[in-house]
Simulated assay, not measured.
Amino acid sequence: MKKVVISLFALLAGTSFAMAEDAGCEAFKWPVTREQALFAAAPATPAGAELAVGAAADLALVPAEKAGFTLPPERAPAQGTFGAVASVDVPAGGAIQISLSGEAWVDVIQDGKAIKSAGYSGVKTCPGIRKSVRFKLAAGPATVQFSGAKKAELKVAVLTPE
């Protein structure tokens, strides 16, 4: 009888874990299905490149101390982490959503000033997507800084919020 109870418990626990794993992406405050599709075919992109709104890039990062940040990141990067600077042309309306495949800090700079995020959602149980951050900006050029990444590559999607 004990073996049956333990096996049933293990089966239910495994099912619950699998369901939680599948539901991981649903835990974001907004849908991330566009990012999932874009990340699958994100082209390799060097640091310093322009990020297109409506697309994703597999961004090559450099050691944080060599990233050439325009302003110091809001959260100082730990020793041995990676970063990059990129640009984006913010569309009319000014709202953008930047989603990342892994852990990293995102700063957006416009007109020489760091812009506070307008919304944030982060989930550790969504395969391939770690966080999504929204910003309200003026239309025109902006600088995006990524810092504190533990790996030298980071998939990044820049979208208009749904």
Rank of each mutant, 00 (worst) to 15 (best):
V32P: 02
D22N: 07
V156P: 01
P46K: 13
E162D: 14
P63W: 08
A139Q: 15
P161Y: 06
E65S: 13
A44G: 07
V90Q: 10
G102D: 14
P77R: 11
L71Q: 13
A92W: 05
K150Y: 06
D58W: 03
A49N: 07
F9Y: 12
S121K: 01
A84F: 05
L59Y: 05
P161F: 06
S87K: 13
C126F: 03
R75Y: 03
K3C: 00
I96W: 04
K29D: 09
G148R: 05
V5Q: 06
K155Y: 03
G94V: 14
V158D: 09
A10I: 11
V133Y: 00
W105C: 01
L61H: 07
P141C: 03
V133Q: 06
K150W: 04
T45P: 04
Q110K: 12
F146C: 09
A118G: 04
R134S: 08
L12M: 12
S99G: 01
L137F: 10
V158E: 10
P72R: 10
W105R: 10
W30S: 00
A44V: 14
P77L: 12
E153L: 05
K124Y: 02
V156M: 08
S147A: 15
F82T: 06
R134G: 02
G48R: 14
P127R: 06
G102P: 00
P31M: 05
W105H: 15
I6D: 05
S147F: 07
E162W: 06
G140C: 14
A118E: 04
A40G: 05
V158N: 10
A138N: 15
L137N: 13
T45N: 08
K2S: 08
A37K: 14
A84K: 09
G80H: 02
M1V: 02
A18M: 09
P161C: 10
A56G: 04
G24T: 03
F69T: 08
A57C: 05
G148V: 09
G112Y: 07
G122W: 00
A10Y: 01
G83M: 09
E74S: 14
I129A: 04
A52K: 15
P141N: 11
G140T: 13
L8D: 04
S101C: 02
K3N: 07
K151C: 00
F17I: 12
K155A: 11
L137K: 11
V108L: 15
V62F: 05
K151H: 08
T15Q: 06
Q110S: 09
G48M: 13
A104V: 12
M1K: 02
A139M: 11
V85C: 09
F28Y: 05
A47K: 13
E21Y: 14
K116Y: 01
A10W: 03
T160Y: 02
K136A: 14
S132A: 03
V106W: 02
